[in-house]
């Protein structure tokens, strides 16, 4: 059996060996779902890992980038602004391909999984930086003035006054950003990271039955999307409890 590079052989063989009706793609074998499901679940775990790691890292980068863009020191603002505009202006797939194909030729070879996470972090972290920046700017100036009047240090001001209020404004936008990131993880299949999309693409080359395979894939992503939506609704409720 050919194909299935990067996929655990046990799973791959179970799904593809002695596959009935491989020649006749118009006949739907009843077990196409049960054969491919273990394969899909294995890729599902990879996709979830990507969402969690890249999501966490871009969350951190959003705060670093957003605060750097509001820095008192002009060079910090410029550098942060340039980096953020750069990653917002070029597209995610271009960044992925650049890190995957072009960087090794310049002498830096990263593991493929890391390339995916780094590209997702840089791209969505840059979008997130704008969320953090605009939410902090949305806090009324009186809050800062009151904190200064209370003799707080700039760090205390940010930590105890500004950020807790800004965070509630950010949450819905971060929810949308995480959904975008989840959809973005599908692109890593194109640089051969074995996520759900990669598994299904490989399986399709061997056993066909595109309709069943891609329907399963769409539903799997939809389930993650619903879970993320519910998670962020819950967070929004939690952080706005007891407030007007």
């Amino acid at each position: 059996m050919t194909g299935g590079e990067g996929i655990p052989p046990a799973l791959w063989n179970k799904a593809t060996s002695d596959f009935p009706c491989t020649e006749r793609k118009d006949v739907i074998p009843i077990d196409v779902y049960s054969r491919v499901l273990p394969l899909l679940l294995d890729g599902f775990v990879v996709t979830i890992q990507l969402v969690i790691f890249a999501g966490f890292l871009s969350f951190v980068m959003s705060f670093v980038g957003g605060l750097a863009r509001l820095s008192r020191f002009a060079p910090v603002r410029w550098v942060a602004g340039f980096i953020i505009e750069f990653f917002r202006g070029t597209s995610l797939l271009v960044q992925l391909f650049w890190l995957y194909y072009a960087l090794p030729l310049l002498g830096v070879t990263l593991p493929t999984g890391l390339v995916g996470i780094v590209a997702l972090m840089l791209n969505y972290g840059s979008y997130g930086s704008e969320i953090v920046r605009s939410s902090i700017l949305a806090i009324p100036k009186g809050q800062t003035e009151a904190a200064i009047a209370l003799n707080m240090t700039p760090f205390q001001r940010m930590k105890s006054i500004i950020l807790p209020q800004a965070f509630r404004i950010m949450l819905p936008s971060f929810g949308n950003l995480m959904i975008e990131l989840m959809k973005g993880t599908a692109l890593v299949a194109l640089i051969t990271i074995p996520d759900m999309t990669y598994y299904i693409k490989e399986a399709r080359n061997t056993i066909g039955h595109d309709t069943q395979l891609f329907s399963m894939l769409l539903v799997a992503y939809f389930i993650i999307g619903i879970a993320l939506t519910m998670l962020f609704r819950w967070l929004e409720r939690k952080f706005s409890a007891g407030r007007v």
């Binding site: 959904i179 959809k183 599908a186 299949a189 769409l218 939809f222």
Partner: peptide
């Protein structure tokens, strides 16, 4: 459904 699934997979579909 369309908003929560990746455009790449929709294109494949």
């Amino acid at each position: 459904f369309i908003r929560l699934t990746p455009p790449l997979v929709q294109l494949f579909f």
